[in-house]
C-alpha cells in the first residue's frame, strides 16, 4: 500500500500553491526540514521567512504580514504552534480574524521517540475552542493537499493538524471531493457509525472490513473538519445507525469525540463511545508501538464497536 506523511504532502502542495498565488508567504521557526516548508523556501526564498526558534514572534509576524494583505502559512510542531504561541494565535490571529493558516506537523503520539514533551495531545481541543478558528485534520497525503487548496480559498484563520509518519493513502488525489466542514462517508453501514479523523481514519476502515466479516455493517466517516463540524452528517448517522464511535489520535477530552458527542446529545441522543488517548501524556517509543500502548489500534476499534452494539441491544 502506498504511504505518504501528511507533512510531506503539505510541503509539496505549498510549492504548487506558491506557483499559483503570489500572495502566499510561508513562515517557519527553525523546523522547515521537518515541517517540510523548506521546499517552499527553496522555490520562493523571497516569500519564506525563518523566525528562528521564536514561535511567538513567528505568529505575531504572520499577523502583520496578513494585515498587509498576504496569505500566510505558518508552521512548527503542534506542541509549539499551539502550546508555546497559544495567546499569539488567539489574540493576533483569531481575535483579529486574520488570514493565517497555522499548519502544525508532528501532532499526536506518532511523533514517536522524541517523547511526551513533544507529543501534542490537546491541540484540537485548544484550537476548536477559539472563536473564528477553523480546525482541519486530514487523514492522508491526498486529502492534505486538497485541504490546503481549500484553506487557501477560505479567508480567515485556520489550524491544520499534520503528522510525522508516513500513513497509507486512502484517497485518489484526482477524485477527492474535499469541502471544509463536510465529512466524507467512506463506507456505508447500517449497524453503527465510526467517525474518525487524521491517521485513525485508515485504521477505522480496516476495522470496518473485519467487522463486516462477522456481519456487522459499520459506516465510516472521515470527519476531517473538526470545526465547523458537520452537524447534518452526524445527525443523519445517529438516526440511521443509532450508535456512534469516534476515533482520534488526541485526548478524549475536547477533541473530535467531544465535538461529535455535543451534536449527538443536543440533536438526536444515541450511544456514543470515544476512542482516543485516555487523558494521559505520551512517552518515547516508535509511532506504531505507542498507538498500540495507548489503545489506538484496529482491535481497540473493534472492541469498542462490540461494546456499543451490546449497549444498543440492551436498550431494546
Amino acid at each position: 500500500m502506498e504511504k505518504q506523511a501528511t507533512r510531506d504532502a503539505y510541503g509539496q502542495a505549498l510549492v504548487e500553491l506558491g506557483h499559483l498565488h503570489d500572495d502566499i508567504v510561508v513562515l517557519d521557526a527553525d523546523l522547515s526540514s521537518s515541517t517540510k516548508t523548506a521546499g517552499f523556501g527553496k522555490a520562493f526564498p523571497a516569500r519564506f521567512i525563518n523566525a528562528g526558534i521564536a514561535e511567538q514572534n513567528m505568529i505575531g509576524m504572520a499577523a502583520g504580514l496578513a494585515a498587509a494583505g498576504k496569505t500566510v502559512f505558518a508552521s512548527s510542531f503542534a506542541i509549539f504552534a499551539v502550546g508555546r504561541a497559544f495567546e499569539q494565535v488567539r489574540n493576533s490571529l483569531a481575535y483579529a480574524n486574520l488570514n493565517v493558516k497555522v499548519c502544525a506537523t508532528h501532532a499526536g503520539l506518532t511523533v514517536g521517540e522524541d517523547g511526551g514533551s513533544h507529543q501534542a495531545v490537546e491541540d484540537i481541543a485548544v484550537m476548536r475552542s477559539v472563536p473564528n478558528m477553523c480546525v482541519v485534520v486530514p487523514a492522508d497525503g491526498p486529502s492534505t493537499k486538497a485541504a490546503l487548496y481549500r484553506l487557501y480559498q477560505r479567508k480567515g484563520p485556520a489550524y491544520l493538524r499534520l503528522g510525522r509518519p508516513a500513513v497509507p493513502k486512502i484517497y485518489d488525489g484526482e477524485k477527492i471531493d474535499f469541502v471544509i466542514g463536510k465529512g466524507i462517508e467512506l463506507r456505508k453501514g447500517k449497524d453503527v457509525t465510526i467517525i474518525a479523523c487524521g491517521i485513525m481514519v485508515h485504521k477505522s476502515l480496516e476495522a470496518a472490513k473485519l467487522l463486516a466479516e462477522e456481519g456487522i455493517e459499520a459506516a465510516v466517516i472521515d470527519m476531517h473538519t473538526i470545526k465547523p463540524i458537520d452537524k447534518e452528517l452526524i445527525i443523519k448517522q445517529a438516526r440511521s445507525t443509532g450508535a456512534i464511535l469516534t476515533v482520534e489520535e488526541h485526548n478524549i477530552i475536547g477533541g473530535l469525540g467531544s465535538a461529535v458527542a455535543e451534536v449527538v446529545a443536543e440533536n438526536h441522543p444515541v450511544f456514543v463511545e470515544r476512542l482516543g488517548i485516555e487523558d494521559i501524556f505520551g512517552q518515547s517509543a516508535g509511532p506504531e508501538e505507542l498507538l498500540e500502548h495507548y489503545g489506538l489500534t484496529i482491535q481497540n476499534i473493534i472492541d469498542k464497536i462490540h461494546l456499543l452494539l451490546n449497549k444498543k441491544k440492551e436498550l431494546k
Binding site: G60, M61, N91, S92, A96
Partner: peptide
Amino acid sequence: EASTGSLGQGISWSVGMALAE
C-alpha cells in the same frame, strides 16, 4: 491598523508589516 492590547504582540505585527513592505 492592528488589534493590540496583549503586550509584545504589536511589535511582532510591525515586523511582519515591514517584511511585507
